[in-house]
Nucleic acid binder design. Structure first.
Lengths: 357, 357
DNA sequence: CGATTCGATCGAAACGATTCGAGTCGGTCG
DNA sequence: CGACCGACTCGAATCGTTTCGATCGAATCG
């Protein structure tokens, strides 16, 4: 009756032990435990009792995953460092969406940060599929490893690659819409703050050479959208998607000889930082400086301003990724599905207005 | 020479295939691949070439983990929902610390949220050890499962339990220090905002009955510290550690008939929310209301105030947990080490002062 | 030159489950 | 009363590695 874990010896209890105790075969125990076959009520009872008496913890996941060829784990692969990856609530929302998309009893999430520096991790962990999030072209080698292991890969705004199930965002259109909004208001001198170009690149002024190197799709595409409207606007590469990086970027752009009348930030957190940098300099937003963000996260006390931004369905995107993983696992032979494109929506807040004078 | 993954047939390549191609035995391939045995240069070359030619992805982690009895995965178990768990940068810092403590080539992190509602997950995933973070007494059943699996468990501010390696924080002392600080300033009417009592409990007014139920150690201990100074102060249970929850809690306390002259919040994010609630009501901090936090996160643009708070070494705590996991894995027979106690440090900011009048 | 040793390699036994085909047994139908 | 049919149970193969002990040569030592 007692199920104390301490009463038995040091050895771990195996399914075979339960079988012996219940006086049945291994197969029967397995059948009963998994409910995957017929079993008489008395046998079932006997097996369950034996398991309880021995304090059996259930089938060893390692053995089970070898035999079944599935581990019940989905990897979330990112180029960023762990601390950076989830600092932006946007990414957190995506992660949450992935978990929801995978469903209640679905696979668990294995976090693999620094995917570029540490590709070995990707080949040594037992997972059934991978979701790439915040990845640039630098993960190409990692991708090759995943391909060799025949694992389904879903890319959230990841670079196009064969066999990768793409979940995309209309970054180009979204960014262009914001830029057009500023142009319509009359802004001629605008500044840009981009997300990191890729994990290999440092923060600093945006040069045409660097711009050509942008490896992360979201960064590159959003830049492209802006360029359609402001081909020559100066820019600054933020160190990360965070308020502090935004403050630094804002400082760099605003302290220039001829500061911009508007700044397009590639994320809301960065935009909040830019606003702070402006206000620290005595500039009022939007009167002295218009600022736009991107993502549409809840700013919830991060700022008093109602930020003009492009709202993206981060949670839904993640959910789609999760469901795509499930679908790929259910039918591994199926051809790679068509890319799914999510759309951003313009939120006209109160951080943009006509330039002065 | 070409390592294209597409050139070979549909079947996954196994170590045995490489062995056959190289004309050696399985054991030799394994020895070469793992560098775990002597091998002549020519053999090594032959094996490596064969592996490259076949596009072998390396030993299957599932099989390897069965044989070795290790999966190279450490679970991070939390009672909270995924989105809540990492909303507070404090938790993120701890997570980051865990990753650092586990080391560069160390185990990967498997995130297991909602541990109470979904204990099955804990018994079906192949991991080698678990770190409990943000857990109350409700994870007892989960703990029992882990014990049966004979897995090392590290608890970060987790309830005391046999066999759990404890990494603690002097919450009681820290909270008392803050309360004493307020008392010395002359505050008599203070309010308390607690962290959630446990994942089962809702937000709302803090009653003595509920107070007795607090299952999460950090919540309970911090409360205990305050009670040593202000036994009867009214309180409010926040829904989560977030600015919005702080705003709600601040509203509840400040809109009471005889509002407090100071509020002790159990986390910095909550404190920031409380400050916002105060300012929304035209109260100035600290002149009209003193506010204290807990944790000492970087507030980086979340607020202009220099918050008075207890700074805790979140990253170091996580790192200690990671190292403890490593130690336990290195010597599974070793007795449970003594609890490690981390200390908080008072940061006197500018959000507290004498009460008016 | 024979005995010893050591390095390189191999065969076979785990690791702990799942699963498939085959058996067993009691009952039913013809 | 015998053949047949289901429901239940079992044995054995399998998943892909790692690892232990044995083997086989060649080189060293006496």
């Amino acid at each position: 009756m007692s199920e104390s874990a301490t009463e038995n010896g040091g050895a771990r209890i195996r399914l075979a032990d339960v079988a012996a105790r219940a006086g049945v075969s291994n197969s029967t125990v397995s059948l009963v435990l998994n409910g995957s076959g017929p079993a008489s009520e008395s046998t079932r009872r006997r097996v369950l009792d034996a398991a309880a008496e021995l304090g059996y913890a259930g089938p060893d996941p390692r053995a089970r995953s070898l035999r079944r060829g599935r581990s019940g784990i989905v990897a979330v692969v990112t180029e960023d460092a762990l601390a950076d990856a989830f600092r932006d609530p946007m990414n957190l929302a995506q992660l949450d969406g992935i978990a929801d998309g995978l469903g209640e009893g679905g696979p668990s999430l294995l976090i693999i940060p620094n995917a570029i520096d540490d590709p070995a991790r990707v080949s040594s962990s037992p997972f059934d599929a991978a979701v790439m999030i915040g990845c640039g072209v630098g993960i190409h080698d990692t991708l090759e490893l995943l391909r060799r292991r025949r694992l389904p890969v879903v890319g959230l705004e990841a670079p196009r690659a064969e066999g990768v199930i793409a979940i995309d965002l209309d970054n180009v259109d979204g960014a262009r819409a914001l830029a057009e909004h500023l142009r319509e208001l009359g802004h001629r001198r605008v500044g840009i703050v981009t997300l990191p170009l890729g994990s290999r690149h440092a923060s600093g002024p945006l040069t045409p050479e660097l711009e050509a190197l942008a490896s992360a799709p979201s960064t590159g595409e959003r830049l492209q959208g802006v360029r359609a409207v402001y081909p020559d606007a100066p820019g600054w590469i933020a160190a990360s998607s965070s308020i502090s990086a935004g403050i630094a970027a804002g400082a760099a752009l605003l302290d220039a000889p001829r500061p911009p009348t508007a700044i397009l930030a590639q994320s809301d957190l960065i935009a909040v930082g830019v606003i702070r940098a402006a206000e620290d300099r005595g500039l009022r937003v939007p009167d002295d400086l218009s600022v736009t963000g991107f993502d549409g996260i809840r700013l919830d006390g991060l700022t008093d301003h109602d930020l003009t931004t492009m709202v993206q369905p981060a949670h839904a995107k993640g959910e789609a990724a999760g469901r795509a993983v499930l679908a790929a696992l259910a039918d591994p032979e199926a051809p790679t599905p068509e890319p799914v494109l999510f759309r951003t929506e313009l939120h006209l807040g109160a951080t943009t207005t006509r330039p002065r004078g």
